[in-house]
Design a protein around this nucleic acid. Structure first.
Length: 1038
RNA sequence: GCUCAAGUGGCGGAAUUGGUAGACGCGCUGGAUUCAAAAUCCAGUUCUUCGGAGUGCGGGUUCGAUUCCCGCCUUGAGUACCA
């Protein structure tokens, strides 16, 4: 029962509360009533905008950001808030430390799931997205995050995607100058073209640009000029081979494909040629690589970006194809360009290999070889990408009949095709050096091609020698005797002399396809004149998503926007108008694709700085004040998607002068996944034949009846291989059959003859974790009544103890299909948000994957109850102005030190233990001193904001605890006068000895050696050596 | 295959610069309280043949190693014919 205040006390409190405008709950409960407290303070923070950040402040800024959540229909499970809790603790801590903290939240609300749902149900994705956001918001709110919600953004909101469209236009209007190594406005390129032509332009552009003079440029018509410029723009339209996913009806980026199938849904993906918008991210490959050295990310994350960028330094080499008339081609002189990282091995080339898709293949294949080559190409094109990846062992290929000329020896080299050469990397052709590359080696062995050895003293009879170190080149003319490095240099030099090669750096990073054949994404601000894309002027943005009656592609295979009736651009009214007005003179068709998911998330961190601005994506002042994200927390699944694209856009925006930073995320932490603890039961399927003998009163058989039954027997894992268990199963089945017979034939006795006919292996299946208790005991009755397990209604259980089935546990990913999902709503209801926050942190290191086990939450929950009891006594606040004792201060200050260190190191789990130790100690010390209990609340308030805010308030403060300074650590309280020395013998601690801190080494030795236990331990031996580290340890050797 | 991360009680984990291995919590055992249960409180809880042994395994450096070095094994994540 709750304690009721006396009337006069109540009045006094009420007066005070009215003054402070804090919600009142009458009949203050002296118990820790977390539900009430948490609701009260969440409402208070929201009403008072406690966490609203100011864009202009004299205090230093700190920007803490969580990775943009996609509001899925399933809502949050306990794994999702982990990172949010960590960042919230850090944000709150930084506020205590005097920083002006920006800690915003919003939604990456365009995306596939809402659209898939729309296709199935016909509901507009905007409607379901709105609903999902509401659920998310409710769930986030109840955990007590200190977000500044006044800055909320949603990527699907036109006032937001207006600026995504704007950035797209900037990209379209830009080109990349290699010389200055940055992007510029396209007008500067046009100027150069009209004055000097393009020969001197060093730009990142398509490979197929023709060279033209200024006069030629000026003579081109507008369409031709546009066509050329498109090859230079940072975003461009090109026919590219894309990853087409028929099931999703869209194109996917490389990072959206996992193991050859779509990341979402696991559908097959095939190669298809389509005209698509692409982003020239490859222009930034080197800067994206170099920038990694400037940022504080985990090494593994940087490593995956490095791998994705895939820089390799080598040379391009041109081989001339030896003309051969039998190919029947009109042109007879061809060149094969290859990229190699080992130009030093050029004298080891014994054949060349082209990708089967290579353009030259059809041109150089001789008539004789044509049937074989064509058959091979046909066979390989049938193999899906996935088969090709899975099947690395099988060596296949075909000889084209053509020969290329070695640049130095002028010897003919046979040209092969093989699918181990990828069309998409380098030039799609390789110079094969079997002695130095295992794949070339295997290919040569398989097709009996010679394997010349060009390495001094290295045996290549078994395998290729791929290492670069400790190698000296031989049989290689002018390279003889040179090690790798020098040989490489020399080879490139000689190739340059012949004009048949040069040093070259290659990147694996491809330009990113930016079109999606989807409805629920940003529309492009683009219309088409004579097939050439035109940007809509920035002042007419946003171009809003049109309405469509269905969210599927059209019958003619166009994207869903092809279904919109009002989707044309009038250059007269500068508005979107009905399609019937299209006349290709003033009204033009609009782009039908939409932007990919990463468009909106590549710049959202800037929008939070100035979320409401309608003039610019964020004001210069706001951008300059907040600069970049100081701490970014999120999952590692974004390693090569979002985190690479964001860096790319930021570098671009910097080049164009829109922002002043080069990297968006200074420090990044990947929180580990919270895994589910699945419950597994095991079943046998057991088949029996029974012979039922019906008996009369005398026991004589009246009749025989054979029956067959099949039973699902649930058995505890421990019993599966138990000896007596078969007998138990048979007994139980007999019992069950007997019971049934007795029910149906009550007055007849019978005898049963069982015969086992089959017995399956034990099969595990998932049990809903909600019907299993913390001791792994399945509630059998609940199980039989559970709608999921109706099939087991009458199943037999074989268990150690009656009525209790012990499930087996397995840690796996938390997922609906495994029935191991734990919902935070229930946790908050049962234990409160503060308990949830503490427990999520207490589970283990933030960055590590760890299993969730709800049972353990009672530990942190009873800690909070103990804390409450420490502050709130039987009927009044237990906090007094009593002077703190030495012990009180020692406990407080060691806690301050530890918690501060922990937060700075993102070691949140260890501070939770520290809080527990502190409360245990202060309780044992019967501490009531305000001078200790107040600062302790501040320490804890980042972790458990509600209970601390409540107690802070009860202590009489009217300002939120979130705004008060962090307690100062004072080392003097930790100074000890004595030390409990561990006394070790040969490094093993045997006993401890309390000695004064200021005791000299000699005195320590004398005291220890004279001690009874030392004498007993030594058994008369004389120690060889005595190590004494004052204040640390004594070690006696001998 | 390559890259990265990690292996410590029944479980989650702690030991931050080499110095008392197992903090803190869960679970378990026993006890108190209760008509009973929940809750709460107290005690114990690495293994052990009671000598000791012990941080994945085998070596090494050191007075002393979970921590440093060498070689292996296992698990997880990412990536993959990248020339």
């Amino acid at each position: 029962m709750g304690f009721l205040w006396k009337k006069h006390q109540l009045r006094a409190i009420e007066n005070k509360r009215n003054k402070l405008k804090i919600p009142v709950f009458t009949g203050v409960n002296m118990n820790y009533n977390f539900n009430e407290i948490e609701k009260k303070w969440q409402d208070h923070w929201a009403k008072n905008q406690t966490f609203k950040a100011d864009n202009f402040s004299d205090t230093p800024k700190y920007y803490v950001l969580d990775m943009f959540p996609y509001p899925s229909g399933a809502g949050l499970h306990v794994g999702h808030p982990l990172g949010y809790i960590a960042s919230d603790i850090y944000a709150r801590y930084k506020r205590h430390k005097g920083f002006n903290v920006l800690h915003p939240q919003g939604y990456d609300s365009f995306g596939l799931p809402a659209e898939q749902y729309a296709i199935q149900t016909g509901q507009h994705p905007a409607v379901t997205t709105e609903e999902n956001i509401k659920t998310y918001r409710r769930q986030l709110d109840q955990i007590g995050f200190s977000f500044d919600w006044s800055r909320e953004v949603r990527t699907s909101d036109p006032s937001y995607y207006k600026w995504t469209q704007w950035i797209f236009i900037q990209l379209f209007e830009s080109w990349y100058c290699k010389h200055a190594d940055k992007a510029f406005h396209i007008s500067e390129l046009i100027k150069v073209f009209s004055e000097e032509g393009n020969e001197g332009v060093e730009a990142i552009c398509d490979d197929n640009v023709e060279i033209f003079s200024s006069s030629e440029w000026n003579a081109f018509d507008a369409t031709k000029q546009q066509e050329i410029l498109l090859k230079y723009r940072m975003t461009y339209l090109a026919e590219t081979e894309v990853n087409w996913c028929p099931a999703l009806g869209t194109v996917l980026a490389n990072d959206e494909i996992v193991n050859g199938v779509s990341e979402r849904g696991g559908h097959t993906v095939m190669r298809k040629k389509m005209t698509q918008w692409s982003m020239r991210i490859s222009a930034y490959a080197e800067r994206l690589l170099q920038g990694l050295d400037q940022i504080d990310w985990t090494e593994s994350l940087k490593e995956s970006q490095r791998n994705w960028i895939g820089k390799s330094v080598g040379a391009s080499v041109t081989f001339k194809v030896i003309p051969n008339d039998s190919s029947g081609a009109v042109e007879t002189s061809h060149k094969i360009d290859v990229f190699t990282t080992r130009p030093d091995t050029i004298f080891g080339v014994s054949f060349m290999t082209l990708a089967p898709e290579h353009d030259l293949v059809s041109k150089i294949t001789t008539g004789e070889q044509k049937p074989e080559v064509e058959a091979y190409i046909k066979a390989t094109s049938k193999r899906s990408e996935r088969d090709r990846m899975a099947d690395v062992k099988t060596i296949t290929g075909a000889f084209t009949g053509a020969y290329a000329e070695h640049p130095f020896t002028k010897e003919p080299i046979p040209v092969w095709i093989g699918d181990y050469v990828l069309a998409g990397y380098g030039t799609g052709a390789v110079m094969s050096v079997p002695c130095g590359d295992q794949r070339d080696y295997d290919f040569a062995k398989h097709f009996d091609i010679p394997i010349p050895n060009i390495f001094e003293g290295i045996d290549i009879s078994e395998e290729a020698y791929g290492a670069k170190e400790n190698v000296v080149i031989a049989n290689s003319d002018f390279l003889n005797g040179l090690p790798y490095k020098e040989a490489t240099k020399k080879a490139i030099l000689e190739l340059e002399k012949l004009n048949q090669g040069e040093g070259k750096t290659n990147y694996r990073l491809r330009d990113a396809v930016f079109s999606r054949q989807r409805y629920w994404g940003e529309p492009f601000p683009v219309y088409y004149v004579n097939g050439m894309p035109q940007m809509i002027d920035k002042k007419h943005l946003p171009i809003r998503l049109p309405e469509v009656e269905k969210y599927l592609p059209t019958e003619t295979g166009e994207p869903p926007l092809g279904r919109a009736d009002v989707w044309a651009w009038s250059t007269e009214s500068n508005t979107v108008v009905a399609n019937e007005n299209i006349n290709h003179t003033t009204v033009f068709p609009l782009e039908l694709n939409t932007m990919p998911g990463w468009a909106g998330s590549s710049w959202y961190f800037f929008r939070y700085m100035d979320a409401q601005n309608d003039e610019v994506f964020a004001s210069e002042e706001a951008l300059n004040y907040w600069e970049s994200v100081d701490l970014y927390i999120g999952g590692s699944e974004h390693a090569t998607g979002h985190l690479l694209y964001s860096r790319f856009w930021v570098k671009f925006l910097k080049d164009r002068g829109f922002v002043s930073i080069e990297e968006p995320f200074k420090k990044l932490i990947n929180q580990g996944m919270i895994l589910g603890t699945s419950a597994l039961a095991f079943k046998h399927i057991v088949d029996y034949d029974f012979l039922i003998k019906y008996l009369d009163i005398n026991g004589s058989i009246i009749s025989n009846e054979p029956i067959s039954i099949s039973e699902e027997v649930l058995i505890e894992q421990d019993l599966i291989n138990d000896d007596g268990v078969d007998g138990r199963i048979e007994t139980e089945i007999m019992k069950k059959v007997r019971r049934k017979l007795e029910d149906s034939r009550p007055n007849i006795s019978f005898d049963l003859k069982p015969k086992l006919t089959s017995f399956s292996l034990a099969m595990p299946f998932h049990i809903d974790v909600n019907i299993v208790n913390s001791s792994d005991e399945l509630d059998i009755r609940a199980f039989k009544n559970h709608p999921l397990y109706q099939d087991y209604n009458e199943s037999i259980f074989i268990t150690e103890e009656t009525d209790i089935y012990k499930v087996s546990r397995e840690v796996e990913k938390m997922s609906k299909s495994k029935y191991n999902v734990v919902n935070p709503d229930q946790i908050v209801k049962d234990y409160g948000a503060d308990s949830l926050r503490l427990y999520e942190m207490f589970l283990g290191p933030l960055e590590q994957a760890k299993p969730w086990n709800t049972a353990g939450i009672t530990g942190v929950h009873s800690f909070l109850k103990k804390l409450w009891k420490l502050y709130v006594g039987e009927n009044r606040l237990n906090v007094t102005t009593t002077e703190p004792t030495k012990d009180n201060l020692k406990t407080l200050h060691k806690t301050i030190k530890k918690v501060e260190e922990d937060i700075e190191n993102f070691s949140f789990n260890t501070s939770v233990s520290t809080f527990m130790i502190a409360v245990n100690e202060l309780t044992a010390q019967k501490c009531t001193s305000k001078a200790v209990l107040e600062p302790f609340l501040i320490l804890l308030s980042s972790y458990a904001p509600h209970i601390t805010e409540e107690l802070w308030n009860q202590l009489g403060y009217n300002e939120s605890i979130a705004t008060v300074p962090f307690p100062e650590f004072d080392a003097k309280h930790l100074v000890e006068s004595s030390k409990n020395y561990p006394i070790s013998f040969n490094g093993k601690m045997k006993f401890t000895l309390e000695l004064p801190m200021d005791m000299s080494k000699d005195d320590i030795e004398k005291t220890v050696m004279a001690h009874d236990k030392t004498i007993a331990q030594l058994e008369g031996r004389t120690p060889k050596k005595i190590i004494i580290v004052p204040g640390k340890i004594v070690n006696i050797v001998g």
